[in-house]
């Protein structure tokens, strides 16, 4: 097992390297560069010389291979460089936003799991009754409702009925947990609802399948309590597909919440991502893509470990 974990961790290096190379060239294929964009707002024309000086300052005048080598040697030293747009070190740019996005993602996941598993199990147990239909309507509605729209509703309701608005300025959890939660619980709820809808449907169908298995009949024939049959015998088997869905959704939340972040005025990774691409901020975009790719890889790895832990038939070598 330890050997497997080490192997998987080492395999992350070539994967991330591939992502780094790909994004480096993809960004350069996109027309326009940061210098043109920066001066495009100037009303009086900007001279060619100014543009050239700016390009030279950012190292964009160097041949492509030179830029590539600089980028790669930087990566090798875990140095992501500075943002071309703001000039600030990239890890400084990302640090707080990453914390915010990660926190919203974790909170949404907790909300989704707490909703989805009991609801999904209940719907499966009461298949084709009003309970099942209610759960299904609730989850279909969740799938059909965009998170940002639900977010807008939250804000309106809070404002109109409670004359209260969540804090607008981000406070890190470690500075003031209460302020932090007051702000982030709303986006987490808005995102968590949609997220839970996907997971509820998966839990329901996985449970329905498992409940028809022979070993559930065996468990019932042994005279076990219904609760024990559900938790020990059924849920453990039904968790595998649910876990996959949850993990994929979680990975998506790392950088995919552009509009919801706008609605709640959150300065998260999603917003930063869009801005960095719009600015052709090569260094920042590259770093963000790597970060999102790393999140996906880490989450997938954790899921694989969880699979092995749940299902003894899966053993890694």
């Amino acid at each position: 097992m330890t050997k497997y974990i080490i192997k998987r961790l080492l395999l992350m290096i070539p994967t991330l390297l591939g992502v780094a190379v790909l994004i480096f060239f993809l960004m350069r294929v996109v027309p326009g560069d940061i210098v043109e964009l920066r001066f495009s707002g100037e009303t009086s024309g900007v001279s060619k010389e100014t543009l050239a000086i700016e390009r030279a300052r950012l190292g964009l005048d160097k041949p492509l291979w030179h830029q590539f080598v600089t980028y790669m040697t930087g990566l090798a030293r875990f140095d992501l460089g500075t943002s071309m747009w703001t000039g600030a070190p990239i890890h400084e740019e990302i640090k707080l936003r990453f914390a915010l996005t990660l926190q919203v993602a974790i909170m949404s996941t907790i909300i989704a799991v707490l909703l989805a598993i009991p609801l999904g199990v209940l719907a499966a147990l009461k298949q084709d009754t009003w309970v099942d239909y209610s759960v299904r309507i609730f989850s279909i509605a969740g799938l059909a409702t965009p998170s940002f729209w639900l977010g807008i509703l939250f804000i309106l309701v809070l404002l109109v009925f409670f004359k209260w608005l969540p804090p607008m300025v981000y406070t890190p959890f470690w500075v003031n947990p209460w302020q932090n939660m007051l702000q982030l619980i709303w986006p987490a709820l808005a995102v968590g609802y949609r997220y839970s809808a996907v997971a509820t449907r998966m839990t329901r169908s996985a449970m329905l399948e498992v409940l028809r298995e022979d070993y559930i009949r065996t468990a019932r024939a042994k005279g076990l309590w219904q609760k024990l049959i559900l938790t020990r015998h059924a849920l453990k088997n039904a968790m595998l597909p649910v876990l996959t869905v949850i993990a994929l959704e979680f990975a998506f939340l790392m950088g995919g919440l552009v509009v919801t972040e706008q609605v709640f005025n959150l300065n998260g990774l999603g917003l930063l991502f869009v801005e960095s691409v719009a600015h052709r901020d090569y260094t920042l975009t590259q770093a963000l893509v790597l970060l999102v790719a790393a999140s996906f890889i880490v989450v997938n790895f954790l899921v694989d470990l969880a699979y092995a832990w749940i299902d003894p038939r899966i053993r890694f070598r």
């Binding site: 022979d214 065996t218 019932r220 024939a221 042994k222 005279g223 076990l224 088997n237 003894p312």
Partner: peptide, 27 residues
Amino acid sequence: RRVRGREIAMIFQEPMTSLNPVLSIGR
């Protein structure tokens, strides 16, 4: 429930699918 397993036990046809794959034999 108290009769099942305690007073009347059942053996099923398919030993491949009638045991829970994720629980140990001991459990």
